[in-house]
Design a protein around this nucleic acid. Structure first.
Length: 480
RNA sequence: GGAGGCGUAGCCAAGUCCGGUCAGGCAAGGGCCUGCAAAGCCCUCAUACGUCGGUUCAAAUCCGACCGCCUCCUCCA
């Protein structure tokens, strides 16, 4: 396993990645609150961590990947009230939709998807433990974390307790000992979901779930904990306090946070109304194109979203897919004793450069750049073979290697499929298109270009593009 | 106010930790191919790094000051 560098929010530094129990990696990513549809921001987060997970596995780590669903929270409860249905119905609906859109964009399933409602018992135990340790206190059915008891509070976000107390934004509460204290357990009103506990009927606070589920499924110390940058404070800060306040050992070794999606350089958010759900976007762009777009930026940097940018990414992605097809076609050329002293592209060099980019904090932008440079070399080579019917053994081996490399890095590591669009469609459909192409070819042979062009145009109108070449006419689906 | 980050060619974007050879993409122009197209491929395209100083043989990269922008400190990926 080669040296892998990751940027750790905890230290604000790039560090060498060394899991506690290599090659095992315990990874936890904060999942969505399932009360509404996913938007581009979610895609950015989960695609980023999906690639990180994929790359770690490529490097030989055995990753245990856990991602929660927050199913009990003000938002799911309110939504349930609005629709007058049980909260579980809301949670189930949006969990299903989450999977629909994330599966489509190539996010591999986590090993485990725990929910808060499935861990209430563990939450109660954890909170009880904190109370016994003097780190928490009960007030009228609520339980709060006593922030001043945790010396390291602020270590992740760089916040200083004193300064936060001076801040105007911290609202004092009559119940809390200190305005910084946060709820571990909340008393439930009669008409809201609740569980019996030593403090009466209530439900878990927001932050506690990740501490409990992380610990339950991955142990006291997690290797990687991920999430959006907005979660650094207070969510992740509180997770550290809650967990370490009880266990006394380091909760997370590497904190990784993805950057935001902005729209016209503004933060995308519900309050601004400038967001797109993935479902909406999929009507206009293929999920793979959106994934490609996301990967054109290193995951920690903000990425500005616009339809024009997505289209741009789509063009670059199409080029990549066509390159893959061209490699396959070249590979299919027969092998013969051709004596050609061609300089073949350096596959090994490319391989190392790609890996180096990924090892530099999962720099997918750079990795895609490396693919492009190498693709350019191959295109020149393939172009020079255009009129040759045969290629020699050495050349064929190089093409095969190139095809394998591209497939492995693009589909397996980056999660971008390289399907041959000309192979899409049902057999019946293919036969029909072939028939039309044949008719058009006859027209062309007879010099009836008017008719030939009409067929081409009408097929284009139906979403099929024809490409004439010396080897005949090929077709493919548009926007594949 | 506190914390984190950003400012690179028409646009997007790597590189900045470990100073020295201008990744890559998109757009644009030219060419090859083609009945014409489309697609594809090739070539051209930038002596670019917010500003001002400093260190150095050498700075996008290090140091200092300043300007502009974003995020977090409140639910948020």
């Amino acid at each position: 396993m080669s040296k892998l560098n990751v940027y750790n929010t905890l230290t604000n530094k790039t560090e060498e990645f060394e899991p506690q129990n290599s090659p095992e990696v315990r990874m936890y990513v904060c999942g969505p609150t399932v009360y509404d549809d996913c938007h581009v921001g979610h895609a950015r987060a989960y695609v980023s961590f999906d690639v990180i997970r994929r790359f770690l596995e490529y490097e030989g780590y055995r990753v245990k990947y856990v991602q929660n669903f927050t199913d009990i929270d003000d938002k799911t409860i309110n939504r349930a009230k609005e629709e007058a249905v049980p909260f579980r119905e809301i949670a189930e609906r949006y969990t299903r939709r989450y999977f629909d859109v994330m599966d489509a964009i190539g996010v591999q399933r986590a090993d485990l998807y725990p929910t808060v409602s499935g861990h209430v018992e563990e939450v109660i135990d954890h909170v009880q433990g904190l109370i016994e340790a003097g780190m928490a206190y009960q007030v009228e059915g609520d339980v709060y974390y006593r922030v001043k008891e945790f010396a390291n509070y602020g270590c992740l976000s760089g916040q200083d307790i004193e300064e936060m107390l001076e801040g105007e934004r911290v609202e004092p509460s009559a119940k809390k000992e200190s305005p910084l204290d946060f709820a571990l357990w909340k008393r439930s009103p009669e008409d809201e979901p609740g569980w019996e506990s030593p403090w009466g009927r209530g439900r878990p606070g927001w932050h506690i779930e990740c501490s409990v589920m992380g610990r339950t499924h991955l142990g006291d110390t997690i290797d990687i904990h991920g999430g959006g940058q907005d979660l650094i404070f207070p969510h992740h800060e509180n997770e550290i306090a809650q967990t370490e306040g009880l266990t006394g050992s380091q909760f997370v070794k590497y904190w990784l946070h993805n950057g935001f999606v902005t729209i016209d350089d503004d933060k995308m958010s519900k309050s601004l109304g400038n967001f797109y759900t993935l479902e909406e976007l999929y009507e206009q762009f293929s999920p793979a194109v959106i994934r490609y777009f996301i990967l054109t930026r290193q995951y920690r940097n903000p990425i500005d979203f616009s339809f024009g940018r997505i289209e741009e990414a789509g063009r670059a992605y199409t080029r990549l897919k066509k390159f893959f097809v061209r490699l396959k076609r070249a590979e299919a050329k027969s092998c013969g004793p051709v004596k050609v002293q061609s300089d073949l592209p350096d596959n090994s060099e490319f391989r190392e450069k790609f890996l180096a980019a990924m090892r530099a904090d999962f720099n997918t932008a750079r990795a895609l750049g490396e693919i492009s440079s190498w693709m350019k070399q191959w295109n020149e080579t393939l172009e020079s073979w255009r009129d040759r019917k045969q290629i020699n053994r050495r050349e064929q081996e190089a093409v095969t290697e190139a095809r394998h490399l591209l497939d492995k890095f693009t589909s397996k590591v980056l999660g971008l499929e390289l399907v041959d669009t000309s192979e899409a469609g049902s057999n019946n459909e293919e036969d029909l298109i072939e028939l039309l192409i044949e008719l058009r070819s006859q027209a062309r042979e007879n010099g009836d270009y008017e008719r030939a062009d009409e067929i081409r145009e009408r097929l284009r109108g139906l979403g099929y593009e024809l490409h004439d070449s010396s080897e005949g006419t090929r077709w493919e689906l548009k926007n594949g």
